[in-house]
């Protein structure tokens, strides 16, 4: 109970660092100097001290959305294992976590429509289009891992996989991992699905939805999105490649857990930065091809588990 709370706080605290790391490595790949990895913290701190501007047309949905998003993402963080394999898995399993992210998306898209600007509507519409394929992909790819390890509890999956050596490794794992990686990019507004560093309306998805938020509200929206990105990376690390996770609360276990997690996150951060620097954003109506590929991969993952 306490461990999972500490871990959730840690995820929350480290998420701007992870985003900063991606931005910094992206700058490196692109031959720029880039801002410090701590820049996201400074941005958030600044935003928290600003007044918010709300549209005359906006309703109470706009006001509650930042808090709902932050709440959903923290609740999800409590149910995801981080350094150790303990989490509030008895409260909610992987389906609950995925649907908590769904809650966040639902409210974010509502707020996108709320101000009455066409940018917001465009962002919401596109977000829901992308998620129509991405959400099932995520569910199916984690279901594969649930079947392999015999539980739908995320920490249970990590524990069973990590403690049984390489016994449970099957081809299905890699298919599911590939599907999940593509979904992570799509869900977190990353190239090639969306470009996080643009404000050009024709390409926007996520940025368009949060366009009308400002001040404290924007800080919460940005922070919850950063936390969501880190959580996806953590799920990728702990569900698909959990080896090294601390299965007990000893000093050695924790140290191994921290080192392993840092290495994995570093690797994922670099991978995302590399993808973003080497690929162009796909045209919106070319996206379904990519997303359908990842959906098929996840479906194949479950099927191959039954056949192979």
């Amino acid at each position: 109970m306490l461990t999972s709370m500490v871990q959730a706080l840690l995820v929350l605290a480290l998420s701007p660092l992870f985003t900063g790391l991606i931005r910094r490595s992206k700058a490196y790949f692109q031959g720029r100097q880039g801002a410090s990895v701590l820049q996201p913290y400074r941005d958030l701190a600044k935003l928290f001290r600003k007044d918010s501007v709300l549209s005359h047309d906006a309703s109470w949905i706009m006001t509650i959305t930042p808090y709902v998003c932050m709440t959903a993402v923290i609740a999800a963080a409590l149910m995801v294992p981080f350094i150790t394999d303990s989490s509030l898995g008895f409260v909610g399993d992987l389906i609950v976590v995925v649907y908590l992210f769904g809650t966040m998306r639902f409210f974010m898209a509502l707020a996108g429509l709320d101000a009455g600007s066409s940018f917001g509507g465009m962002g919401s519409s596109r977000e829901m289009t992308v998620s129509a394929i991405v959400e099932p992909t995520i569910l199916l790819s984690i279901f594969t891992m649930a079947l392999i390890s015999g539980t739908t509890d995320l920490s249970g999956i990590s524990r069973n996989l990590a403690t049984s050596g390489l016994d449970l490794v099957r081809p299905a794992l890699f298919l599911a991992l590939a599907a999940f990686f593509i979904s992570t990019l799509a869900e977190n507004a990353r190239v090639p699905v969306d470009n996080p560093s643009t404000h050009l309306e024709l390409t926007m998805i996520h940025e368009a939805m949060v366009l009308e938020h400002s001040g404290k509200h924007l800080a919460l929206m940005e922070w919850s999105s950063m936390t969501k990105l880190l959580l996806y990376a953590v799920i990728m690390a702990n569900v698909f490649l959990p080896w090294g996770i601390a299965t007990d609360l000893t000093a050695i276990g924790l140290a191994t857990g921290i080192v392993a997690m840092s290495l994995k996150l570093l690797l994922f951060g670099l991978a995302i930065a590399l993808v973003e620097s080497s690929m162009a954003k796909l045209r919106l109506f070319r996206l379904p091809n990519l997303l359908t590929v990842s959906f098929s991969l996840s479906l194949l993952a479950v099927i191959s588990y039954y056949i192979l």
Partner: peptide, 30 residues
């Protein structure tokens, strides 16, 4: 799940109001 959501929601509300001080909410056109 309901308890966690309510508790976290309360925390988020209080802490985000506390950090950076109470700030105005201005109404303007979109």
């Amino acid at each position: 799940i309901a308890v966690i959501i309510l508790a976290v929601m309360g925390l988020v509300l209080t802490l985000s109001q506390a950090y950076g001080g109470r700030r105005k909410v201005v109404r303007a056109d979109t």
